[in-house]
Design a protein around this nucleic acid. Structure first.
Length: 194
DNA sequence: AGCACGATTAACT
DNA sequence: GTTAATCGTGCTC
């Protein structure tokens, strides 16, 4: 059986390349031997202590420590008192950066996702960073998880390549009090119609 | 010890 | 379009 998981070398690159490269790949969560998965269609890059939108702007803290670690690990954090958000750690060890996965297109485990998303229309199961975490049961217990380990319950599989013509970039979402120029950096990547 | 706010979501006017 | 929900985190006193 060929291993289709993205290797650590994929994540050990400039964060913008990883964010772009993750579009079209398959995010897989295995629970009790059951696969839940979706194609990644939206990402955002957060790059280093100088990026004032990145949590690492405050330096190394217990919360941000994982971003300073080796690439290919999950950075899962809790926000707004109720939501989990999932990121992939990028770049070299010691440089804090990550890619936030903002949306996926559900393809495996649809019945379970529907249940977790409380009967809402499929269009809204995983069209937000906290929604996909709820659908795939990604929470703090997966913070620091090695996405490249052979037995990982959370990883990224190789998907179909996405042409540049179907990718758009825009400023990142939800950075209400972040100063320029960081607020307007076009570091959000979205897959449109092919 | 206290406080302001957040890489959001869902419901509501 | 607006706003409540809800609490960990980092900053100030």
């Amino acid at each position: 059986m060929v291993d289709h998981r993205l290797p650590r070398s994929f994540f050990a690159r400039p964060t913008l390349l990883v964010a772009r490269g993750l579009l079209g790949q398959r995010l897989v969560r295995i629970e009790n031997g059951v696969r839940l998965a979706g194609i990644i269609v939206e990402t955002e890059a957060y790059i280093g202590e100088s990026d004032l939108a990145c949590h690492a702007k405050a330096g190394r803290t217990p919360r941000t420590a994982i971003m300073y670690g080796p690439p290919g690990h999950a950075y899962v954090y809790f926000t707004y008192g109720m939501h989990w958000l999932f990121n992939c750690v990028t770049e070299r060890e010691g440089f804090p950066a990550a890619v936030l996965v903002r949306a996926i297109r559900p393809v495996e485990g649809l019945a379970i996702m529907a249940q977790r998303r409380n009967g809402r229309p499929q269009r809204h199961w995983t069209d937000g960073p906290a929604k996909l975490c709820q659908a795939l049961d990604i929470n703090g217990s997966l913070n620091g998880q090695d996405l490249c380990a052979p037995d990982s319950p959370l990883f990224i599989e190789v998907g179909d390549p996405l042409p540049d013509s179907s990718v758009t970039t825009t400023p990142r979402v939800g950075l209400n009090t972040v100063p320029e120029p960081w607020k307007s950096k076009p570091w959000r990547f979205k897959a449109g119609a092919v």
